[in-house]
Design a protein around this nucleic acid. Structure first.
Lengths: 240, 240
DNA sequence: TGCTGTTTGATACAAATGTTTCAAACACTC
DNA sequence: GAGTGTTTGAAACATTTGTATCAAACAGCA
């Protein structure tokens, strides 16, 4: 029969229509959403196959096990994510470092917060930060570390002359911490800042804030070197 | 027998020695550590009782169920945590708001990052942010919201004249985001900033950085109002 | 000591969950 | 169209995990 051809053509016409993809692909996409929402441990195989419209045996047939499915999800989203990453490689030398930081934060936040299936990898990486799995080492090496290095270079440029490495590192973590909080604590943000939404426009406004805040923070940190030991006010925290 | 008296005396002599506490208390403490480390869903009852040196039936006898145990953990740590919270109520009007922010961040970080059993509640709250349970509503109401309000008042004072509420909210989330990242992503921090430790001294240095960074960030944000619509650089993020 | 209520320990139970089996359905080739 | 390898579906299986049972051990009391 040429039913195969029909299916293949339909898949080419509407690759985003889940019902037209083959079981293998539907499983990967359903599993990815499930792993992002609940983490590897809490996501149930039966829920994944139900969401994918597949049979429970399919996960074992196609991927061997739940772990195999997770590995396939990681691998599938790694490919395009790595290609995407290379396009935003940080301080390119032609624009100023401030512009690079703006670009970095915008891209980082869009990938992290926008509900585009294209950027699933960022959300999987965020999950790995909180609930590490066997893939954590690879995630660090292939995603977190390169992105961190890029940010490090940008921040170092902004700090300017003779930057202490500790200062740069702390500033980097302050920048990514601000961003990741909106992903880690979505429920809290929804209560504390009810007006905030996760659409592209909201995310862009958020990026503008984080960039401005971080630029001010970096410059201020560079002024008051961390080694200066200002008066402390938290030494008595456990004495009451 | 006077064995009871002996046990009671031993408990008074060394109340922190886990082996001398009764099963009820040992279960609460072991469960608290387990819930903090793995979250409610991933923590296993058998692991908890093993850590507490108790029998599997004890959790049902003392708390009815796993959920009952979690509720008991929350309640137990709530009491002292709420009392502790009232002592750091934010902008008290006599010190300047910068000093209040310093105090706030120091306290927040010490409670969140220091490995003192006394401050377990903060880590439980952090867990609830990522893995909400049935207790989430209560956690928001009793812990997150009051602390947020206190920070809000401090930041509003720092921003100064006619502060837009959105600006203040964003700055608050930037401050807590920086702090919480070190708890959410401990594993990542360990790789990206190997020199960082979680001892009181390290946490204090970190607090100094976050305060300086945040003060610079708040002032910068207040200068460049978020409504000014600077040129955007992330509109093309999904077009490649 | 004997009695009574409390706590514990070993075990079993039941539900959830990842895994496996195997026959039926399907797709492709000759 | 028959044959062959691939995929699917329903059911069963094995393990994990929260819960329940019940007798033994214990503590307090007369």
């Amino acid at each position: 029969m040429f039913q195969t051809l029909i299916v293949a053509v339909l898949a080419m016409i509407s690759p985003s229509n889940e019902q037209e993809l083959d079981t293998h692909q539907r499983l990967i996409e359903a599993a990815a959403r499930m792993f992002v929402e609940q983490g590897f441990g809490s996501a149930k195989v039966r829920d994944i196959v139900a969401r994918a419209g597949a049979n429970i045996a399919a996960v074992n047939y196609h991927f061997g096990s739940k772990e195999g499915l997770y590995a396939a999800v990681i691998q599938y989203h790694s490919a395009q994510a790595i290609a995407e990453l290379s396009q935003h490689a940080g301080d390119d030398g032609v624009r100023g470092p401030e512009a690079c930081l703006r670009d970095y934060v915008c891209t980082f936040l869009q990938r992290l917060l926008t509900d585009t299936p294209q950027f699933t990898m960022s959300k999987l990486v965020a999950r790995e930060m909180v609930d590490p799995t066997a893939a954590f080492g690879l995630i660090i090496e292939k995603f977190i570390w390169p992105q961190y290095q890029a940010l490090h270079a940008i921040v170092r440029s902004i700090v300017g002359a003779k930057p202490s490495d500790e200062l740069v590192r702390r500033c980097c973590l302050s920048v990514v911490g601000q961003c990741l909080y909106y992903q880690f604590a979505r429920q809290v943000v929804a209560r504390l800042d009810p007006e905030f939404g996760y659409g592209p426009a909201d995310v862009e406004r958020l990026a503008e804030h984080i960039v401005a805040f971080s630029l001010g923070g970096i410059h201020q940190s560079a002024r008051t070197r961390t080694g200066d030991a200002q008066q402390s006010s938290c030494g008595d925290v456990d004495g009451r």
